Simulated scan of single mutants.
Amino acid sequence: MRRACLVMLVLTLSGCYLDPYAPAPKPGPTDWYQAGWDDAMAGDPIRSDLVLAHVHNDDEVDRQEWLRGYAKGQQRICDPDFLKVQGSAGKSFPQSCEKLPDTEALRATWQTATDAGIKASRLN
């Protein structure tokens, strides 16, 4: 009886074995619009197709969709009101806002909010 229990235990545990060299399962196709939105909202700069393929683990980059999503995310994160919140929270100025025509004004808005946030934290 004891031997049968031991055999059952070994068989049960061996069924849970995971081969560390097995390839990772491939996820579904990348939503390039969402990937662009996420990259802009993370403050990432515009990337090359090679970098996008590597970061998102998908060799079939749809650059146009990624750029559309990036532009929408950039509109959101580079909004002056959003930058005020980011600055007062101590977040860094997003790189996704660096190439816009009004970058200096946006950076000034962010810097003012950052300074006010630092001052408020010192008073507390």
Rank of each mutant, 00 (worst) to 15 (best):
P25D: 07
P29A: 14
Q34F: 08
K26G: 04
P27F: 03
Y33C: 04
T12L: 15
Y33M: 10
L13R: 04
A35I: 06
K26N: 11
P20L: 05
Y21L: 11
A22R: 15
R47P: 05
A42T: 09
P45R: 06
D38S: 12
A35E: 07
T12H: 07
A35Q: 04
G43P: 00
T30D: 00
T30F: 04
A35L: 02
Q34E: 14
A22L: 14
A35M: 08
P27S: 10
Y33V: 08
T12M: 13
I46V: 15
D39L: 08
M41I: 11
T12P: 05
P25W: 06
A24W: 10
M41D: 04
S14A: 14
A22F: 11
D31A: 05
G43W: 00
A42E: 14
C16K: 02
D31Q: 08
G36Q: 06
D39E: 13
G43C: 07
G15A: 15
A24M: 13
C16H: 08
M41Q: 13
W37V: 08
P27G: 09
G43Q: 06
D31N: 15
G28F: 10
I46R: 15
S14K: 01
D31F: 06
P25N: 09
W37R: 02
M41G: 01
D19T: 04
A42Q: 15
Y17C: 02
D38Y: 01
P45F: 04
D39Q: 12
A35R: 04
G43F: 07
R47V: 04
P27T: 09
D38I: 03
T12Y: 12
Y33E: 11
A22Y: 11
T30N: 03
D44H: 11
P20Y: 11
A22S: 13
D38L: 06
D19V: 03
W32F: 10
P29S: 12
D44V: 00
P25F: 03
D39G: 02
S14V: 07
G36W: 02
M41S: 07
S14G: 14
L13H: 05
D39H: 11
D38C: 07
I46G: 07
A42L: 13
Y17A: 11
A24P: 03
W32R: 00
W37F: 12
D38G: 00
P45C: 06
L13V: 11
W32I: 03
T30K: 10
D19W: 10
A22E: 14
D38W: 07
P29N: 10
R47Q: 13
S14I: 08
A35W: 00
D31V: 03
D39W: 01
A40L: 05
P29D: 11
M41H: 01
G28I: 06
P27M: 04
L13I: 09
D44S: 13
P20D: 10
I46E: 10
L13N: 07
P45Q: 02
D38M: 01
R47N: 08
L18R: 14
S14C: 15
P27Y: 05
D31E: 12
D38T: 13
W32D: 02
Y21V: 00
L13A: 10
P45V: 04
M41N: 13
D39V: 03
D44E: 13
G28N: 12
Y33W: 14
R47L: 12
P20C: 07
T30C: 03
